[in-house]
Design a protein around this nucleic acid. Structure first.
Lengths: 140, 140
DNA sequence: CTAATTTTGCAACAAAGTTGCATAAAATTT
DNA sequence: AAATTTTATGCAACTTTGTTGCAAAATTAG
């Protein structure tokens, strides 16, 4: 039994179900961001496609995960860190990195997004930054 | 007859066809970025869905348009400016803005993406920045 | 103008995402 | 701990989105 996933679900006032625990565990043990299809590949034997869609949406709504923009039209999700979860509104302020070689998308938690000045009349609500390149592991 | 679209196609050594001219004209007269479905809505009476897909891909390959990352899983495209086209490799260095109210995505050509320092071992190839908020027009 | 090349439309398909509803599971109440 | 209420899940059917092969049509080159 995994206490961590149970706790996160309870903290977000969600029912603790097998599917939610499983999907949350997948995120907890993954070093990179995951797309719907990645999760499906890992647990479609146990849980229905529709359940995965709905669970990801629920996690998004509760701020357990955040989604990462990309130009390849695949939405990827990653766990929010504690600060993000507790704040309620998702100002994930870190840069995301997608490796052109291994294809993995990572949160660079230690790299924060620099300020940017918008033209007159524009107001900012959220900001996202994604860098493509070669990651630490592939460079070696 | 629109000379501008003809010229852009010729400059990219593409055959000048009705569909390509039409789609390029749509971009040339649009103030915001367009998704496949936006273009389809405007010209699916004249051109096939498949042609639109292929044309957008061709324009991307030739650097006539660039795609804009988003968290909503919809790829949007916008014309590259001259600098971007001529450079060959797409370092669009401007910030993109998506308005939460009207939903439009814009290139903020005058706002360039600030430098960011990556952790040791990471190398950068491309960088993207998308800001969500309220645009000039909606704020009024 | 003709031949070669390229693009397009159509059909068929594959993949991705959504919705309603009955059943099953979890939480709540007694 | 059983019964009730509430919530989540699976299934089926469907819509939307994107892809591929191929013949016909349009464009370019000679």
């Amino acid at each position: 039994m995994n206490k961590q996933s149970d706790q996160i679900l309870k903290n977000s006032s969600l029912s603790v179900t097998g599917g939610r625990k499983r999907i949350l565990d997948i995120f907890l043990t993954s070093s990179n961001a995951l797309a719907h299809q990645d999760i499906e590949a890992l647990c479609s034997d146990q849980y229905d496609r529709v359940t995965i869609y709905r669970t990801l949406q629920t996690f998004l709504d509760k701020g357990i995960i955040h989604n990462i923009p990309s130009t390849d039209n695949i939405t990827r999700y990653a766990l929010c860190n504690d600060a993000c979860i507790s704040s309620g509104h998702h100002h994930d302020n870190h840069v995301h990195f997608k490796c052109d070689q291994c294809g993995k998308t990572l949160c660079l938690d230690e790299v924060s997004i620099p300020d940017v000045k918008l033209p007159k009349g524009y107001s900012m609500h959220e900001i996202n930054m994604v860098v493509n390149g070669i990651c630490k592991t592939c460079k070696k």
